[in-house]
């Protein structure tokens, strides 16, 4: 499989990359890990005139804690995040990174590429929607910061302009007694999930002080399940409220029938995944160390 011909550019800074994209126009694209872009080019579903490689730009893949924030460079690889100690206080990040595809893809693919791709089945959009996250974008005209809730517009479409690049992801550390979990059902590791659910919550005793719930693969974009959140926020966490939240999430999911499953079945998966992710999130919020793994066929 070979892509159609294109010109290759190696950028030395994000700013230069943005200017190049601006000059080269719509037929150009940035290349990060290439794990979404290159398959599309090889299958010739995408034909480009120019590719602007971001991989040789220094200093854009660090993962650092600054005050009560974690700064993640856009080019941090899934594998970097899987192994990172810095993100350990937010276990849902590890759940996400370690469950993406296989070793090769995790070693190449980047968190920035995943967000920019805005794939409704992508794992990072789903997980990061449950956290207080801001995204730094760089364009020829300068920088701007976008809260993640405003970032995704449509399937495969973010608010970024053609010549804008994601430079970093800023995650505010959750308050004490917080915990989260990310669970997906996947037929096999190197494919996108059939359905996934991310739950991040903060407890005050048995009461859920705050919660974020997001659903992957079951809509045109990742879905923020606000109805489900309402079933938990400010309420005491028990089997009943968790079930109500799971039922609400099931209703908020808007899946399509495809090779991975029917509408009804995907909704059923959502209910189970939200329920189980919430249960793990609660245990983690209570300080328990819980290992989780996705479900496979």
């Amino acid at each position: 499989m070979y892509p159609s011909p294109f010109r290759y550019h190696r950028a030395r800074s994000l700013k230069e990359a943005a200017s190049l994209l601006s000059e080269l126009g719509e037929g150009s694209k940035a290349l990060a890990g290439g794990q979404s872009l290159i398959p599309l080019m090889k299958l010739r579903l995408v034909s480009l005139s120019d590719l602007v490689d971001l991989n040789f730009i220094p200093g854009v893949s660090a993962i650092e804690q600054k005050d009560n924030q974690i700064h993640i460079g856009a080019l941090a690889r899934h594998a970097d995040l899987e192994k990172s100690q810095t993100t350990a206080p937010i276990p849902i990040i590890h759940d996400c990174a370690s469950g993406i595809a296989d070793v090769q893809i995790r070693s190449r693919g980047t968190i920035g590429g995943s967000l920019a791709e805005a794939d409704p089945s992508g794992d990072w959009p789903c997980v990061l929607l449950t956290l207080p996250v801001e995204l730094r974008c760089v364009g020829p005209k300068g920088e701007r910061t976008v809260p993640i809730s405003k970032f995704f517009v449509d399937a495969y479409t973010s608010v970024m302009e053609h010549d804008e690049l994601l430079s970093g992801i800023i995650v505010k550390l959750p308050p004490p007694h917080s915990g989260g979990a990310y669970l997906a059902f996947k037929r096999s590791p190197p494919v996108y999930p059939t359905a996934s659910a991310a739950v991040q919550l903060t407890l005050e005793g048995d009461v859920c002080k705050d919660v974020g719930i997001a659903l992957g693969c079951v809509g045109l974009t990742t879905i923020k399940a606000v109805q489900a959140e309402q079933q938990l926020r400010g309420k005491s966490i028990d089997q009943k409220s968790i079930t109500r939240a799971a039922e609400a999430a099931m209703a908020e999911a808007d899946p399509q029938t495809d090779m991975r499953g029917s509408i009804d079945y995907k909704r059923t998966l959502v209910r189970a995944l939200v329920k189980r992710a919430t249960e793990v999130a609660v245990r983690r919020a209570r300080g328990e160390k819980v290992e989780v793994s996705h479900y496979y066929a």
Binding site: R187, V191, M259
Partner: peptide, 23 residues
């Protein structure tokens, strides 16, 4: 898997999922 007009719906490893060690 084929649809009613003969499109094969499992023409990549994303849809035709061969078994892996994890499974």
């Amino acid at each position: 898997v084929y649809d009613s007009v003969g499109n094969m719906l499992t023409s990549t490893f994303s849809d035709y999922t061969p078994i892996t060690a994890v499974n």
